[in-house]
Amino acid sequence: MRIFRILNNNAVVVIDGPQEKIVMGKGIAFQKRKNDIIPKHKIEKIFVLHKQSSEKFQQLLATLPEKHVDMAERIISYAEGHLKAPLNDHIHIALTDHLSFALERLEQGFAIQNKLTNEIKFLYKKEFEVGLWAKEELKKDLGIDIPLDEVAHIALHVHTAKMDSPSMSEALETATILRDFIEQVETFAGITIEESSINYQRLVTHIRFALHRLEQEQPFEPIDEDMLALIKEKYQKAYQCSEAAAAFLKETYHIDFPPSEVGYIALHIQRLL
């Protein structure tokens, strides 16, 4: 392979037959010029992106700080190993662009916020672990201590890059629905739910699977009429709380849980009470 265009010390463009490819490797372009041959042992990654994405990625590689690009690539490589799954090539654009902008903001003293950090941490545990790994590497190599809110942003980018995963907007919507549901429970019951508690985790898991059943049009687990009546009578506050939160989801998101599901959710709320 011969160099067609140098993007930075670690990335070049080559023309391979009819295709334009981006080739990356540590120091791959050091003291190189156009038409120089690339040593095979220097090649770490090769990308073949469609024209628009390729142009965007080339622009990022040529303009963003190399240390930011290198860190993004290290995070992606670690994520693929940690998750034991390949990620969509678009993450090389999305995460690199996001990470560099976030690091610049932090270096300038701006705060990074993410209202869905707790939900993302619970919903996408393995991806959040990738974000925590990135947090340690960034602190060690660049001296930048990113907050947990940024860890959650990284986790969401990794999650949506997994093959067959929902889009970023769909993943955010799921996390938002869960957050809003929990806030409704807290408001109605007059309590503050500890996110690290096992009962919180059980409730969120239950709601998450309930949302999945609705999305996939799968049947809900039935509940005995006598048992439902007992829940309403014995755990009146928990049932009313579940009913109010379910009504909120129906009005706000057009999500309609059947009575049996409202009953099962009430049992989870009762544990929190």
Results as ranks from 00 to 15, higher is better:
residue 1 M to S: 10
residue 104 E to P: 00
residue 98 H to A: 08
residue 72 A to D: 11
residue 20 E to Y: 04
residue 213 R to S: 07
residue 71 M to L: 14
residue 94 A to C: 01
residue 75 I to M: 12
residue 187 T to N: 09
residue 49 L to M: 15
residue 62 A to C: 00
residue 45 K to M: 14
residue 46 I to R: 10
residue 181 F to P: 08
residue 141 D to I: 03
residue 99 L to C: 05
residue 181 F to S: 05
residue 57 F to L: 12
residue 253 Y to E: 01
residue 25 G to R: 09
residue 210 A to L: 04
residue 21 K to Y: 04
residue 102 A to F: 07
residue 146 I to G: 12
residue 247 A to I: 00
residue 55 E to M: 06
residue 181 F to N: 05
residue 167 S to T: 15
residue 169 S to N: 12
residue 100 S to F: 12
residue 38 I to M: 06
residue 9 N to D: 15
residue 68 H to Q: 06
residue 20 E to F: 05
residue 86 P to H: 09
residue 211 L to Q: 02
residue 196 S to A: 15
residue 262 V to E: 02
residue 41 H to M: 05
residue 52 Q to L: 09
residue 116 L to M: 05
residue 124 Y to A: 05
residue 123 L to A: 06
residue 48 V to M: 06
residue 44 E to G: 14
residue 53 S to P: 00
residue 204 V to P: 05
residue 12 V to I: 13
residue 251 E to N: 05
residue 38 I to Q: 04
residue 34 K to M: 07
residue 24 M to V: 15
residue 257 F to Q: 08
residue 182 I to S: 11
residue 184 Q to W: 01
residue 29 A to R: 11
residue 150 E to L: 14
residue 183 E to H: 11
residue 115 K to I: 07
residue 249 L to C: 12
residue 194 E to W: 07
residue 63 T to V: 06
residue 196 S to R: 13
residue 180 D to G: 08
residue 147 P to Q: 02
residue 254 H to M: 01
residue 151 V to H: 03
residue 87 L to F: 10
residue 235 Y to T: 07
residue 161 A to N: 03
residue 252 T to K: 12
residue 81 G to S: 08
residue 92 H to S: 05
residue 124 Y to H: 13
residue 227 M to W: 10
residue 123 L to E: 07
residue 137 E to S: 01
residue 264 Y to C: 02
residue 165 S to E: 10
residue 136 E to L: 03
residue 211 L to S: 07
residue 63 T to E: 12
residue 254 H to C: 00
residue 90 H to G: 00
residue 206 H to R: 13
residue 210 A to F: 03
residue 12 V to E: 03
residue 130 V to F: 13
residue 43 I to W: 13
residue 57 F to E: 00
residue 189 A to K: 11
residue 68 H to F: 14
residue 78 Y to Q: 04
residue 13 V to D: 03
residue 271 R to S: 15
residue 44 E to M: 13
residue 272 L to Y: 14
residue 2 R to E: 13
residue 113 Q to W: 01
residue 105 R to I: 01
residue 134 A to M: 09
residue 133 W to N: 12
residue 263 G to Y: 10
residue 124 Y to D: 08
residue 255 I to E: 02
residue 231 I to H: 05
residue 54 S to T: 06
residue 150 E to S: 07
residue 94 A to S: 13
residue 7 L to Y: 14
residue 65 P to Y: 04
residue 63 T to W: 01
residue 265 I to C: 04
residue 117 T to L: 10
residue 211 L to A: 06
residue 223 I to V: 14
residue 103 L to Y: 08
residue 20 E to W: 02
residue 137 E to Y: 00
residue 272 L to V: 10
residue 104 E to N: 04
residue 268 H to M: 06
residue 126 K to H: 09
residue 95 L to S: 06
residue 50 H to I: 03
residue 60 L to E: 03
residue 266 A to D: 09
residue 23 V to A: 10
residue 102 A to Q: 05
residue 228 L to M: 15
residue 256 D to Y: 08
residue 77 S to W: 01
residue 55 E to L: 10
residue 106 L to H: 04
residue 264 Y to H: 13
residue 58 Q to S: 10
residue 34 K to W: 01
residue 217 E to Q: 14
residue 59 Q to P: 00
residue 109 G to W: 02
residue 24 M to T: 11
residue 191 I to C: 09
residue 228 L to K: 09
residue 165 S to G: 02
residue 206 H to W: 07
residue 203 L to V: 12
residue 150 E to I: 06
residue 163 M to K: 13
residue 208 R to Q: 14
residue 122 F to E: 11
residue 186 E to N: 06
residue 242 S to Q: 02
